[in-house]
Amino acid sequence: MPISSTSRASTTAEAGSASNPRLSARRRLARRTWWTCVALVLCLLLLVVVSGAVGAVDVDPTQAAQIVLGHLVPGMPWMSDGSLTPLQDQAVWQFRLPRALLAGLAGAGLALAGALMQVTVRNPLAEPYILGVSSGASVGAVLVIVFGSAALGGLSLNLAAFAGALGACLCVAALARKDGALSPTRMILAGVALGTLFSAVTSYLTITTSAQNVVSVLFFLLGSVSAATMSSLIGPALALGAAVVVSGLLARSLNALMTGDESAVSLGVDATRLRGLLLVVASLLTGTVVSVAGGIGFVGLVIPHIARIVVGADHRRMLPVTVLGGAVFLMGADLLARTVAAPTEIPLGILTAFVGAPFFLWLMRRGGAERAGFGR
């Protein structure tokens, strides 16, 4: 019986894959990345619906989905069947949905910033917070809380936090330069020193202000998305979109930088300029998130590490998983923060540390850093 051309081509392709194990491994990783991203997107959709249903106002998940779809697709009959009240609509659309979306944007932004920073310093324990960016943003925000926006030229709390993050970024870049190049070791040392200094300033402002301001300061420093509105999503969404585009275009250069400066230069990558760009992108992204969600740590440390273990260190695969994983992680953490001690709400910074620190220590115990490509 003659063999068809299709069967012959399939047999040839299989033989080619069998003779090239590296190509076969890349295909397996590509499939794993695809299905991981699909699973994370489904988790995001599920978390949006569940978050919309959880709260003081009684709304079940089906009703929460009806409300969201009714606003996204006007004219559909879901909102006019009489089963949904204006209070339910307001609770889901104006309060719970913006909160869930802001948590997702903040988690994605912090995770991406952490991934970029780990490449910048070639250290799996690096994250934007270690460079003092979060502490700089906190100083700007606390100054507005304590002295008012008029004392800072009319800057709002969000803009003051963003300005503090940008100032910290510029200070770290200036202190980390050695012989005209950015030194990864000096960046970490400068970041730790500046972060400690900024934290001391924040602590001094906190203990010298009124009790009412102390509550506001602590709530901001510990992180929360409870005050989210649709308008507060614009800044993080724009920053995340720009960072995703830039990091996607630089994915191959990031891979080269991971191998070391000499190898990167031999491949045509300007390591110093790339490090400077990554520092700015990660810091501005972190500053934007901190300005609307406060100090939420650990996301940028753990999520990129897990993504590398799951899909490998190639940034063309790792970055999408990191962004989606960060969004899922912080949305889930916010849902727990609202429910685990209800009616009391746990600050996100506390919850992410409790959840993430033991898991990260377990990963280190299992040798995750080496498997993620940082063990060289």
Score class of each variant (00 low, 15 high):
V265Q: 14
G326S: 10
Q63Y: 00
D81K: 10
A137P: 10
A264Q: 05
S5W: 07
I303E: 00
R273F: 11
S17I: 01
G148D: 02
F162Q: 12
A176Y: 07
G368P: 05
A327Q: 05
V217D: 01
G241H: 13
T62M: 04
L205A: 09
M117C: 05
Q66Y: 09
V217S: 01
G235Q: 07
S283R: 03
S83V: 12
G70V: 12
L155T: 02
V121W: 00
S156M: 01
R366L: 08
R8K: 14
L69K: 11
R96Y: 03
M318L: 14
L46V: 15
S283D: 02
V215C: 05
G154I: 13
L197Q: 06
A64H: 05
F360H: 10
L361P: 10
V139A: 05
G104Y: 01
G136N: 11
T12K: 13
S10M: 14
F374S: 09
F147L: 15
I207T: 14
G349T: 04
R316F: 03
T11Y: 04
E370F: 05
A56K: 09
P184R: 05
A333C: 15
V142L: 02
S10K: 13
A228W: 05
D314M: 13
V311L: 08
I145L: 12
A181H: 04
A30D: 14
V328P: 00
A168W: 01
F198N: 02
L44P: 06
G294A: 02
G70T: 07
V201S: 08
L222R: 06
A111V: 07
L110N: 00
I130G: 03
L194A: 01
A333E: 00
C171R: 01
L44F: 08
T208Q: 10
G325E: 05
H315A: 01
M117F: 10
M258K: 07
T259H: 09
V50A: 13
A282F: 10
T206S: 03
D89A: 08
A173M: 14
V201T: 06
R186L: 07
S253K: 12
Y204E: 10
G109W: 12
G325C: 08
L238A: 10
L102S: 04
F359E: 00
L40F: 05
L189R: 08
A337P: 08
M258Y: 02
I145M: 12
Y204P: 04
G375A: 11
M79N: 13
